[in-house]
Design a protein around this nucleic acid. Structure first.
Length: 269
DNA sequence: AAAGACACCTGTCCGC
DNA sequence: TGCGGACAGGTGTCTT
């Protein structure tokens, strides 16, 4: 579920509640996530949180006793709640802080993760081979053009490949391609540099707008304070059927890379 | 090396 | 009301 804007929204919501807080206790109620939560996570008990960062869709919490690496998978969310608050269904991990608050990690489908490392988290095998951040200067038309050379895959699949660029999931891939007028099935190598420039701009724009709206809530996602994200109302093609909002032709729904893909056959060529 | 299929898990929705 | 099937925001790993 959560794509980059939802993870960034979560990071921004959590950060002021966590910085300089001491971790009193970690309760792992359900260790079976994407990977089993390591027992070494308990090493972090008593540590003080000094950073809350994001890389791709991973949330990184740094302490003086190692780093927590979180992933929200398809259905994960994290909230700040009083330690005394009763638990909700599918709340798998509770991190109790020294101010009476706690982080509540909830993830019905359990595709998410909590890992622990005492090394530099960016060196972790899961993070070390990732492509550039989409909102960074390193993600530009020169880079994308280079990545598209000799690639026969559909452009949508390419921009969803985290080795090419991180953070672009199914919703924002569809929306970015609509905004740049590119058919999602187009083979990457056959798109002109000029159109790739439009795509780069669209990806940055869509992600930035989504962050400003607090992300997209379809079912599970909540911000750290429990509110949903409001970008859903801004979606032009994802999850829609019927007439295109721009030209009025019927929107199409196909499957690409085993993911539902929404687009307008008239606006996107 | 690249591309595609599959697995992991639970909940929801739709048709019968 | 119940049941079966399709589908859902991700991504590492395995097979072609």
């Amino acid at each position: 579920m959560p794509e980059l804007p939802e993870v960034e929204t979560t990071r921004r919501g959590l950060s002021p509640h966590l910085l300089q807080r001491r971790i009193e206790r970690i309760q792992v109620l359900q260790p079976k996530l994407r990977w089993r939560v390591p027992d070494t996570i308990q090493n972090i008990q008593g540590a003080t949180i000094h950073s809350v960062e994001r890389r791709a869709k991973y949330l990184l919490m740094g302490t003086d006793q190692g780093h927590m690496i979180w992933h929200l998978g398809m259905s994960g969310s994290m909230r700040i709640m009083p330690v005394a608050a009763s638990g909700a269904k599918h709340e798998h991990i509770l991190v109790e802080l020294d101010d009476g608050n706690s982080i509540r990690y909830r993830d019905p489908r359990r595709f998410g993760a909590l890992l622990y490392t005492e090394s530099e988290p960016l060196q972790h095998p899961l993070l070390s081979d990732l492509g550039p951040e989409p909102l960074s200067a390193g993600f530009n038309v020169d880079y994308l053009h280079q990545q598209c050379r000799k690639r026969s895959i559909a452009i949508k699949n390419l921009i969803m490949d985290s080795h090419v660029v991180v953070g672009v999931g199914n919703i924002y891939a569809c929306e970015s391609l609509f905004a740049s007028g590119i058919n999602p099935k187009t083979r990457a190598s056959r798109i002109s540099r000029q159109r790739l420039q439009r795509l780069v701009d669209a990806i940055k724009n869509v992600l930035q707008q989504a962050i400003e709206h607090g992300g997209t809530t379809l079912q599970d996602f909540t911000q750290a304070d429990g509110k949903p994200g409001y970008f859903r109302h801004e979606l032009n093609v994802y999850g829609r059927q019927g007439p295109c909002l721009v030209c009025g032709h019927d929107l199409k729904r196909i499957t690409l890379g085993q993911r539902s893909t929404f687009y307008c056959g008239h606006c996107q060529r």
